[in-house]
Write a protein that binds this DNA or RNA. Structure first.
Length: 94
DNA sequence: TATCTGACGATAG
DNA sequence: CCTATCGCCAGAT
């Protein structure tokens, strides 16, 4: 019973994601930097994979090239479009 | 403590 | 536009 719950890293990332509003789209690298962990883009992805599908707006996070989540492109595209974001070919049009 | 893994990112071909 | 590689970070075993 020594579980400390969310790790410091997770807390920092969650804070950033909670600030995102409908229609907003950010990259993994941006989230990492904003959370105070520059260069940890990959760690952000791992985190969203583990605890993103719960209460976090994982669909508003894409790769640096606008690529959607591998394997969840359909779902992510559907959610983004519902927020007014234009998606094309598994990519976010910006 | 060591090693492996992966919703990434930048660069080269 | 594509795939292949290397580098980086945090988590898991």
């Amino acid at each position: 019973m020594d579980d400390k719950g969310p790790t410091p890293f997770e807390r920092d990332v969650v804070v950033v994601l909670e600030q995102l509003r409908a229609g907003d789209v950010v990259t993994y690298g941006e989230v990492a930097a904003e959370a105070g962990h520059p260069g940890a883009a990959r760690a952000v992805g791992s985190l969203l994979r583990r605890a993103g599908g719960g209460t976090l707006p994982w669909w508003r996070v894409v790769t640096s090239t606008g690529r959607l989540v591998p394997g969840g492109e359909r779902e992510q595209a559907r959610l983004l479009r519902s927020e007014g974001v234009r998606v094309r070919g598994g990519r976010v049009l910006g």
